[in-house]
Design a protein around this nucleic acid. Sequence first.
DNA 1: TTGAAAGCGCTAACAG
DNA 2: CTGTTAGCGCTTTCAA
Lengths: 332, 332
Amino acid sequence: MATQRPRAKRVTIQQVAEAAGVNRSTVSRVFNNPDILLEETVRNVREVARKLGYSPNAAARALRTGRNSNIALVVPDLTNPFMPPIALAVQKKASAHGYSVFIGNADEDPSQEMDLLRRLSDQVAGAVLASPRSESARIHALAREMPLVLINRDIEGVPRVLINSGQGMARAVAHLAELGHRRIIYVGGPENSWSNGQRRDAVTQAAAEHGVSIGELSAGIASFAKGVELVPELLTRGATACIAFDDVLAQGICFGLAENGLRNPEDYSVVGCDDILGYPMLTTVSGPSAVAGQKAVDLLITSLNAPPEGDVRIVLETEFVSRQTVSVPPIS
Amino acid sequence: MATQRPRAKRVTIQQVAEAAGVNRSTVSRVFNNPDILLEETVRNVREVARKLGYSPNAAARALRTGRNSNIALVVPDLTNPFMPPIALAVQKKASAHGYSVFIGNADEDPSQEMDLLRRLSDQVAGAVLASPRSESARIHALAREMPLVLINRDIEGVPRVLINSGQGMARAVAHLAELGHRRIIYVGGPENSWSNGQRRDAVTQAAAEHGVSIGELSAGIASFAKGVELVPELLTRGATACIAFDDVLAQGICFGLAENGLRNPEDYSVVGCDDILGYPMLTTVSGPSAVAGQKAVDLLITSLNAPPEGDVRIVLETEFVSRQTVSVPPIS
DNA sequence: TTGAAAGCGCTAACAG
DNA sequence: CTGTTAGCGCTTTCAA
């Protein structure tokens, strides 16, 4: 930050006080604790303040009180379509509570995650971490420094909102089994993603229950390109259907299938997860991501006033959505 | 903001000063103007500061200097896939300059746009407005209050970065004309969107040049659902191809076409815009949105130090990308 | 090259 | 119910 161009001077509390013929502290009370003042005083000061275009200086307030009305939202990758609905919900809910939101993109990189939070730490009252990739220990440590709420990361002792795709995934497996698929591949996403572990486990277990054989393939980072790229390897694994970590990956796979001369769903069935809707015919597992964002903010702001009692863990359920990328297996 | 739980006490400049055996102002200089100090002093203080985990309090600094290292990014709809790449680029570039980013979603609503900026105004050094929907006069007024850079909105006197989809759109029309289409519908997006006006004009003009008849239909807000919904009306207009305001709308139209028993592209050709890639076979117009975000931030931060001389207007070009939603018109 | 001192705008005891 | 007062942590003249 070099020498910055000075900004237009703002109205201060003192000017309002003078104009209204009261003390600064009275003006302050009008904005922070109006109940203890005479109704008339409040009305009068409000009027003057409005006329002068006064609004309290956030920096001064933050300096004085040690508190502020900002929160941070850190995500691994904003361009992953799973994130924007969450970011949107977080910002809206925060706004409704009078909070502003810093956004940070960690690039799927744990150290950037921590860097961002550190840089933001003294400007925010707390943070929402969506699908954080950092080690649990680090997150735990951070949670001692600042109020934290996690989305889709299950760390005991840290308040968290989890979208349980396990249930939807189980239904997906059941559906495939009913259609006659005997072998399914789970195509995994980021290795240190809680969702990935959870989905893999759910698929594996459901497969066992339905007597379906399961294979695994890991994409690492879930991208469209990765999905396309993976298809030849996928076709090696002798299955008639796959369940992908998320919709983006699933779309890539659908595309790759076509490139390899296979029709979807006739030759190979594909199931995604998250219900991104960019690719509207995708059979997928749909979860309430907006709700997750809202709950996370509610939780965070509540915990600013009173540290949560006990271990807070909110679980949101998902559902299997049958669309057009799944069919009976081809007759072999 | 009720009475907030107190946060862990932070290390102050005074503590560093004492530990290092210097005055507070010296510590301050180490962080702001190290060149005028003895190299040894700087090293020593840096060491002590690091050991104590000191970092300057942003609120105090902002209060004292009247400046700060935050910028605001306001978008009409974060869940529109056009936005996340821009948001990502903005945040990264800002970070590289040592700035943090507030995000605001205006819900396609001019008044929310202004509200957000007002709320943020005293916490940011400036703002990037992506595709703002507010009236030009309002934006102009705002630009006098705080440094502003616009993306995809062309207001003289306000620094702006424009993605010129006109060129790509013209190529799209040419392509359709070459394939034999004689009538094309432009399916418009948000009425007060600069991009929409620009695209419509480009399509109209190119159509005239190629002797192609043009029709128009407006979706208002560009959403998948709107696209689907519009198809019956679209089919009324007697064309063999359409160009949609953006990819989201185009996808909806493709989907709606199928619902109406038409095959794409055999029966009806569709062109989108923005190259969102969620629907990878979409023929579209691709633009450098990440670059737009970067340039916007560069521009903004430059203008913080020195107000821009003259009218700043950066234009980025687009290209037509031929994929699989366009073909020759059906034989009638 | 460094120190001393003032004060940014606001809130929160404490008095009255 | 309202005024007085003392800083929050930092930067920035001004002096030395």
